[in-house]
């Protein structure tokens, strides 16, 4: 049975990931600047008035669940993007999804538009993500190849980045500039159930769209011509993937700001565990993304400093060394 061993190891690793997630959730619930009696807080229940219960149910739980949700959305979005473009360096930001959401949010922060109902910022950010994807789709044209989509995405992304730079350049006050910079660094601080409930339907809808396109992604791994011969022709499936990414990643950016590298690194990490299957990679990346972001947020919560450590900075610190490792391992491979 020596040949079945790697498969078992991979499955075991995936099971361990699945097991690590609830453990990380418990770690997130017990860690924070205030020491709480978790058992007593659980006993008091959702409507408990005690400070331990409020901290657990109103602060730590929604934040941890939001980290899981956003991590899953980013991981899944990255896997779908890499599968569709057949490019291991692709991530949701490549098609301007993150930039579109971020720019919409920045414009809102820039002009200091009044907070009407508490939903304006995230809703506009989601709209921004969809608009960016629509622009990419229109620029690439119907039935565009992966390379044309990438080109259109790079162009739209560059344009949106330029607009963001312009907004920063002409920020009306240092407060507006600070707001924009903090938004671009991403954060889960001070988020509650309302943000979670806002993002949840979009991320779920995005997940449904992406999972429904899993066979298209599998067929696409054989090449565009093979996918077409297998019946995945036309613009329906690419549009499905793009809308799924826009919904999931747009909602994630809308409530937490831009959090980089998760969508890029996570699919790389778990791809060997699913034997390069783009379909299975979707849920495996969602799982690993959720775990990675939750662990990053535990680090953020326990970081002692005069200012809050931004989660985008943490994921960047995780992502950059990963690329160093990727380059070093590629050089070793060439050497041998």
């Amino acid at each position: 049975m020596p040949r079945s061993l790697p498969i078992d190891t991979n499955n075991l690793a995936l099971w361990l990931l699945a097991l690590a997630l609830p453990l990380a959730l418990i770690a997130a619930l017990v860690s924070g600047p205030v020491s709480i009696d978790l058992a007593a807080a659980l006993q008091q229940g959702w409507r408990g008035d005690g400070s331990d219960a409020v901290i657990l149910w109103q602060l730590r739980l929604p934040r941890a669940l939001l980290a899981i949700l956003i991590g899953a959305a980013l991981g899944m979005g990255g896997a779908a993007m890499q599968g569709m473009l057949r490019n291991p360096l692709a991530e949701p930001a490549l098609l301007g999804v993150s930039s579109g959401a971020a720019l919409a949010a920045i414009l809102l922060l820039y002009y200091g538009l009044a907070w009407q109902s508490g939903w304006l910022l995230p809703v506009l950010a989601i709209v921004g993500a969809f608009v960016a994807v629509a622009c990419v789709w229109m620029l690439a044209g119907r039935g565009a190849s992966a390379s044309r989509l990438v080109l259109a995405g790079v162009a739209i992304n560059a344009f949106l980045s330029a607009l963001m730079a312009l907004a920063l350049n002409y920020a009306p006050s240092m407060f507006a500039m600070q707001e924009i910079v903090f938004w671009l660094l991403g954060s889960l601080a001070n988020r509650g159930w309302d943000q979670l409930l806002l993002a949840l339907p979009f991320i779920l809808a995005g997940a449904v769209l992406l999972f429904s396109a899993r066979n298209y992604l599998r067929a696409l791994s054989l090449g565009e011509a093979s996918a077409a011969s297998l019946g995945f022709r036309g613009h329906r499936y690419p549009l499905l993937v793009l809308l799924g990414i826009a919904a999931a990643v747009g909602a994630a950016v809308a409530v937490a700001g831009t959090i980089g590298f998760v969508g890029l690194v996570v699919p790389h990490l778990v791809r060997p565990l699913v034997r390069q299957d783009p379909g299975r990679l979707l849920w495996a990346s969602a799982l690993a993304g959720a775990l990675l972001l939750l662990l990053a947020d535990i680090l953020v919560v326990n970081f002692v400093g005069a200012q809050e450590l931004r989660i985008g900075a943490v994921t960047a610190f995780i992502g950059a060394p990963f690329f160093f490792w990727l380059i070093v391992s590629a050089r070793r491979g060439q050497g041998s």
């Binding site: 200091g112 907070w115 508490g118 304006l120 407060f175 707001e179 509650g192």
Partner: peptide, 15 residues
């Protein structure tokens, strides 16, 4: 002020 700002997000939290 009444205007939304990320810096004042904590003040809008349900707690």
């Amino acid at each position: 002020d009444d205007e939304f700002a990320l810096a004042h997000l904590a003040e809008r939290h349900p707690v």
